[in-house]
Simulated assay, not measured.
Amino acid sequence: MRFQILFGCIVLSLVMLTPAFADDAATVFVQKCGVCHKKGGEAAPVNPADKAGVVWSKYFKRGRHPVDLSVRISNDEMMTILGFLQEHAADSDHPVAAAIPK
Rank of each mutant, 00 (worst) to 15 (best):
M78K: 10
M79F: 04
K32W: 05
H65Y: 11
D68W: 13
A98Q: 13
K102D: 05
E87R: 15
P48R: 10
W56P: 03
L82C: 13
T18N: 07
V67Y: 08
V11M: 11
D93F: 13
K61H: 08
V54H: 00
K58P: 00
H88V: 13
A98G: 06
C36Q: 06
L17Y: 04
S13E: 03
P19L: 03
Q4D: 07
A20P: 00
H37N: 04
A52N: 06
T18C: 11
F84E: 11
F21G: 12
T27P: 00
V96C: 09
C36T: 05
H65V: 15
S92H: 05
F29Q: 11
G83I: 12
D76Y: 10
A26F: 01
A89C: 14
K51W: 02
Q31N: 14
A49I: 01
Q86N: 08
K58R: 14
F29L: 04
A44V: 07
G83S: 13
L82H: 09
G63C: 14
C36S: 09
H37Y: 03
F60K: 14
H37P: 03
V46M: 03
V67F: 07
V46I: 09
S74F: 06
P101A: 12
D91Q: 13
P95E: 01
Y59L: 15
P95N: 10
P66Q: 14
A90E: 08
S70A: 04
F7D: 08
G41E: 02
D23Q: 14
S92C: 12
V55T: 06
G40I: 05
I100G: 01
S57D: 04
P101N: 11
R64A: 13
A43N: 03
K32C: 08
V67D: 07
M78W: 02
N47W: 01
D76V: 15
V71G: 03
L82K: 10
F60P: 07
V15D: 01
I10D: 03
Q4S: 06
P95R: 14
Q4N: 06
G41R: 10
V28P: 01
M16W: 00
Q31I: 13
A90T: 08
F84G: 14
R72P: 00
D50W: 03
A89S: 15
D23W: 03
A25D: 01
L6I: 07
G83R: 10
A97V: 10
F84Y: 12
K51Q: 08
S92P: 02
I5Y: 00
D93S: 15
A49N: 02
Q4E: 05
S70E: 09
I5N: 00
L69G: 06
G83W: 09
A44K: 07
T27Y: 02
L82Q: 11
P48A: 04
K32V: 07
P48D: 01
V30Y: 01
S74A: 09
E42Y: 11
G8H: 05
Q86E: 08
H94G: 05
P101T: 07
C33L: 11
T18L: 10
A97D: 05
H88C: 12
L14Y: 04
A90W: 03
Y59N: 11
P19R: 04
D23S: 14
E42F: 10
H88S: 13
D68F: 12
V71S: 04
V30L: 02
E87L: 15
C33W: 03
V11P: 00
L14F: 05
A89Q: 13
L14N: 06
A99E: 01
V30Q: 05
K51H: 02
V28R: 09
C33Q: 08
N75I: 15
W56R: 14
R72F: 08
K102L: 05
E77T: 15
